[in-house]
Structure formats: structure tokens, C-alpha cells
Nucleic acid binder design. Structure first.
Length: 574
RNA sequence: UGCCGAAUGGUGUAACGGUAGCACAACGGUCUCUGACACCGUUUGUCUAGGUUCGAAUCCUAGUUCGGCAACCA
């Protein structure tokens, strides 16, 4: 983990070569070096209106990462809950769970913008008193009309020159609930001719007689993001306020507010590029639609790029942190190949995950020279490179299942597996040779008759004879039958956000993103898998016992990611 | 047409005026009781045009392309 003070790597000549810093960490380092700040206070400020996704993980790793890297650094978790119409406690709970699961700790520093409503109101009063804010009675449409366009300046509201006294009174009456939703707003008095639209007398407060998930009906007046965020940052003593690129044009307003009220602490906003990933969407609105339209089974559907979806899919917190480190922080609007994410999880799971055998698409094999009633217990290593992982015993019998894809009646040149007359190794067991191919009336292969070589017990031939292929298997009579879900990418195109020829992301959903295998044949020990437990099913991929649908003694498995498959590529070239 | 920002191999990212490097992907090979892992190797890049300089991915100028911005959303 990169969460230490030591971010240097040793070199051959013993000089410490510092790991390169991203541009934000460079600014932070400079501010610390110059004495501008004694340490860092960062914050992760989600709006509780949806579940966290992998893009949020990038921001979480950045903000909490910086706090961990600097002596005395802290990172706040702050809910930006200023729009009661869209927000809900369900989301604050899930967000807290996800941040913790990712491995970060906000300690005592958990805050809600709604806790600052009274203070914020005071700042608004301050602005009104100094003649820098006014109550406007224009309708929503009228305000839009007065705003002008990017190329044409706007025009002043007729209410712009009300006296501070009148504004103060009106603002108080807005708070008291005397006016209906939408009839009045508080606006900053800046410049209707500014080339930056956000500076054309932006709305600071609107009336919304909606129950707030935390303040209930205490308020009917809610502050807007631009007013709330900078002041919340200042109230909390945030030193570096890190946000995504779309807020770049908001920065002059962020600074304007802080310049025009009395504050003790001056945060600096710095913007970086949000994450985009191939074959998925990362917008709360689009993810919400997928959930609401039932295109997926909820926010934590393992196909979703949400933190909860990835967790259920079997991703580890470490793999997501490592992914975030790999993609870095820049201002370049990039589209990251999902292969990078998949690499992170394979890397992590390869080292840590015990191996098991499972047959997803079974083909029965009868070992004709093996005793009918004999059950032989074979020892199988739990990890090929880590003896500490120990061994387990797997039963071997006359009838076993192998993967259908591991047999070909007319094998091409580079096929190393089973075929008529061919010998292969059954992993941890014996060499077997295929003698007979049994078919049904339709000509489909239903069964293979093979013979085993007793001399090859455990998988090695005393005569030194080699086989090119090793395949996995499960004893037919001992097989534990379980549901296994194979997940694939949610969309069929690299960038579902690109709306070509009238198509939207919904037109690119992958109809085969989920394949359910009702009764895969698993080695018996897997019946005891605990929810959330991860395994590598040898030669297939990494799987995780589903945390939601598994029952005691009856786990259901999700495929996290496949193993790399050189044969699949070879074959694809045909 | 206004404002803000960004451009380095297929993808992501480094270089801070001095040999364009790393990871992923792809391709070839070695190894192998997982066609995995590991290991070795190969291909591919500084948006364009000028300028400054002994020397430019880096500095300057102009252009091109891409992204963001006109909720009483965040």
C-alpha cells in the first residue's frame, strides 16, 4: 500500500529516488515546504444521492491517500446534503460502508453540510448586509432569460438594487416559510456581463419545502452547492479542496464567496480529471437508470462499477487501491482500459487465493479400469507457489466430470487436451487415455471412456513420460452442485457514453453480461465456502461466494475475473 | 461565436531545458502437474507549423483537435 510516509524507492547506488508525485501532491508538498500549511486537511464530499463507484474510489484514494502520506494529515468525510429532494439515508449508509471497506478511516471527522445550515445562513446575511446579495423574485425561466448566453452578456434583475434592509427582511421571511417554492431566491450580486456564466449573479439559496433526511422540516430554505461547498471547506479548515474538472469554471465563484465573507481559513480548490472506464458508465444518473429500469439487479449487482458491485463481484480493496495508484492523477480527460482494473485484481488474487477444482460445463468420463466402488483420496496443493497454503484431499472415482472444452474429437494441431487416443494428466491425479467416444442419437458427445495408468498416481509418470496437457476434474458422485454466475462486461462497446447515430448507452447493453450455470460440478470441499470467500477455480478464473445469495452449506459463486487464456487467443486467430 | 482546461505508443502514466521511461495490452519465446503465475524479448509515441537555445515533450507564438460551462443539481 502506498499509505506511508516513505514514498521513495531505493536505487542501485543507494540514493533515494523519490517516486514521482502527481501534480496535486506536488502542490501539497510545496505548500508544506513553504510553510503555508503545517499539514494537510482534505475531504471526500459525496452527495448522498447514489452509491459510490470506482470513480469515487479514485477520489477517495487521492484525498485519504494524501492525509496518510503527510504527518498529521487528516481527511474528512463530508456529506454534501443540500438538496433534500434527491438525497436519502440509504445512500449515506452505503457510502460510509464503502469508504471503510476500501480501507480508509475518517476517525471523528464525519460531517454533514446540513450541520452548517445555520452558519451558512449567517454568511448569507453577511453578504446581504454588505450589499453583495439580493432577494430575486424572477421566475426560473426569467432568470434563465436574463442570464444571456456564452457570447451575449446577461441583463440585471429588476430586483438587483433592493436595499440591504429590504433584502434582509425578505430573506428572513423566506426562511420563515412565508413564500412558496420557486417564488424567490437569494442571489449573489456579481456581474451579469461576466464571460463566466457562473458569475452572472448566481443563485445562492432556493426555497424547497421538502423534508430533509437529517434536518427534517427545520428548513425550507436550502443553500446551493457553490455557496455551501467553499464555506464548508473553510469551516472545516480544509487546506486542499480536490474536485473534478467540471468544477473548474466554478472556481472563480468558490473564491468570490470566500473573498466576500469573514472567514479564518482559506482552502484552495484544485481540479483533476474524473475516471472513465471502457465498457461501462460512471455517471450516477446512468447508473440510477440501470437500477430503476431493472437492467441490473440493484446497485450492488456484480456487473455494476459501483464499489458495492465490485465488492460482491469479488474485487478486493487492495486491488482497487492498486488500480487507483496505477491510473494516476492528471487533468487529461482519459478513457482507461478496463484491462487495467482486471490486471489489478488478478495480480492480487493470484498471490492470495486458494486453488480449487470446478467443472462448469461437464462432460462425463468413465475410467474403465478403475474399480467401481473405489474412492481414492488424492492430495492437492492449495497454492502452486506457496507451500504454506497447505494441501487438501479430493476424492477420485471411476466416474468423473471434465470440462467439455477440454475434449475435441478432431483436435487441431495446437490442442493439448483430450481427444481420441490422447493421453492427458488429470490434475493431482493420474494420466488418462481416451479410448472411446460415446454419442447420443443426435451425434453429440455424451461420455468418454478412458483408462488410467495406476503408475502415474499423483500426476507423475515414473518412466518420465510427459503429457502436454493437464486438465481439471471433479468426481461425479462427490460433486457439489452449485449455482455459478459468469459475468461479462455490461456494455458491448468501449465507450457507451458516445451517442452515435441516435443510440444511447442503453442500446449497447450486453445481453450476455450474465450467464447463470445452475448446477456446476464443484469439488466437495467448496460446499463449506463462506459468503465472500474467494477461490481460484483452476484454469477458469477467480470466484467469490456471493455475499447476498449464498446460504449455509449452499454457496453461490460469482466469477470475479477469468484467468488469462492463451489458448482462447490462439483459437480466436483461426 | 464567449469563457475555462487538456493534448506523450493501442490504453494509462513518467520526464520539471540534457539518452523519451514504466505499467497494461498486443506479438514471439522460455518454464510449467493451471495454455495460469513467473521469466526473456519484440512492435508501437512527444497534435501541427514556426521561433528561442549548443540542446525543446518541456520555454514562446500561431493553429488543430478534444473536453467542460448557459438546474432554483452536485
Amino acid at each position: 500500500m502506498g499509505n506511508t510516509n516513505n514514498n521513495s524507492a531505493g536505487t542501485d547506488n543507494g540514493e533515494a529516488k523519490p517516486e514521482p508525485l502527481d501534480f496535486i501532491r506536488e502542490i501539497v508538498a510545496a505548500d508544506l515546504a513553504s510553510g503555508k500549511h503545517a499539514s494537510t486537511v482534505t475531504r471526500f464530499p459525496p452527495e448522498p444521492n447514489g452509491y459510490l463507484h470506482i470513480g469515487h474510489a479514485k477520489s477517495i484514494c487521492l484525498n485519504f491517500g494524501i492525509s496518510l502520506e503527510n504527518e498529521g494529515g487528516v481527511c474528512h468525510l463530508r456529506f454534501d446534503d443540500t438538496n433534500p429532494a434527491k438525497e436519502d439515508v440509504e445512500y449515506v449508509d452505503s457510502i460510509k460502508e464503502d469508504v471503510q471497506w476500501l480501507g480508509f478511516d475518517w476517525g471523528k471527522n464525519i460531517y454533514f453540510a446540513s450541520d452548517y445550515f445555520e452558519k451558512l445562513y449567517g454568511f448569507a446575511v453577511e453578504l446581504i448586509q454588505s450589499g453583495k446579495a439580493f432577494v430575486c423574485e424572477l421566475t426560473l425561466d426569467e432568470i434563465a432569460g436574463h442570464r444571456g448566453t456564452p457570447t451575449k452578456p446577461g441583463t440585471n434583475s429588476p430586483y438587483r438594487d433592493r436595499s440591504p434592509g429590504e433584502n434582509l427582511e425578505l430573506f428572513q421571511r423566506m426562511r420563515d416559510g412565508e413564500f412558496a417554492d420557486g417564488t424567490r431566491v437569494l442571489r449573489a450580486k456579481i456581474d451579469m456581463a461576466s464571460p463566466n456564466l457562473h458569475m452572472r449573479d448566481p443563485v445562492l439559496y432556493r426555497i424547497r419545502k421538502t423534508l430533509h433526511h437529517r434536518t427534517g422540516n427545520k428548513w425550507c430554505l436550502y443553500p446551493m452547492y457553490d455557496f455551501t461547498h467553499c464555506l464548508s471547506d473553510s469551516i472545516e479548515g480544509i487546506t486542499h479542496s480536490l474536485c473534478t474538472l467540471e468544477f473548474e469554471v466554478h472556481r472563480p465563484l468558490y473564491d468570490w464567496v470566500l473573498d466576500n465573507v469573514a472567514i479564518d481559513s482559506r482552502p484552495r480548490q484544485i481540479e483533476f480529471a474524473r475516471l472513465s472506464l471502457t465498457y461501462t458508465v460512471l455517471s450516477k444518473r446512468k447508473l440510477l437508470t440501470l437500477v430503476e429500469e431493472g437492467r441490473v439487479n440493484g446497485w450492488d449487482d456484480p456487473r455494476m462499477p459501483t464499489v458495492s458491485g465490485l465488492r460482491r463481484r469479488g474485487y478486493t480493496p487492495a486491488s482497487i487501491r492498486s488500480f487507483c495508484k496505477t491510473i494516476g492523477i492528471t487533468k487529461f480527460n482519459s478513457l482507461t482500459d478496463v484491462a487495467l482494473l482486471e490486471h489489478s485484481i488478478r495480480q492480487d488474487l493470484n498471490d492470495t487465493t486458494p486453488r480449487r477444482m470446478a467443472v462448469l460445463r461437464p462432460l462425463k468420463v468413465v475410467i474403465t479400469n478403475f474399480d467401481e466402488d473405489k474412492v481414492e483420496e488424492l492430495e492437492a496443493a492449495n497454492h502452486p507457489k506457496d507451500p504454506e497454503a497447505g494441501t487438501r484431499s479430493v476424492p477420485f472415482t471411476r466416474e468423473i466430470y471434465v470440462e467439455r472444452a477440454d475434449f475435441m474429437e478432431e483436435p487441431p494441431r495446437k490442442f493439448f487436451r483430450l481427444g481420441p487416443g490422447r493421453e492427458v494428466r488429470l490434475r493431482f491425479a493420474y494420466f488418462i487415455t481416451c479410448n472411446e467416444v460415446i454419442k447420443n442419437a443426435a451425434g453429440e458427445v455424451t461420455e468418454l471412456h478412458c483408462t488410467y495408468d495406476p503408475e502415474t498416481h499423483g500426476g507423475n509418470a515414473p518412466d518420465g513420460r510427459k503429457v502436454k496437457g493437464t486438465i481439471h476434474w471433479v468426481s461425479a458422485s462427490h460433486a457439489f452442485e452449485a449455482q455459478v454466475r459468469l459475468y461479462d462486461r455490461l456494455f458491448t462497446v468501449e465507450d457507451p457514453n458516445k451517442e452515435d447515430d441516435g443510440k444511447t448507452y442503453l442500446d449497447h447493453l450486453n445481453a450476455e453480461s450474465l450467464e447463470v450455470i445452475a448446477d456446476a460440478k464443484l469439488e466437495p470441499g467448496l460446499a463449506k465456502a463462506e459468503p465472500g470467500e474467494r477461490f481460484q477455480f483452476e484454469r477458469l478464473g477467480y470466484f467469490c461466494a456471493d455475499a447476498g445469495d449464498s446460504q449455509a452449506g449452499k454457496p453461490v459463486f460469482n466469477r470475479t475475473v477469468t484467468l488469462r487464456d492463451a489458448w482462447a487467443k490462439q483459437r480466436g486467430k483461426g
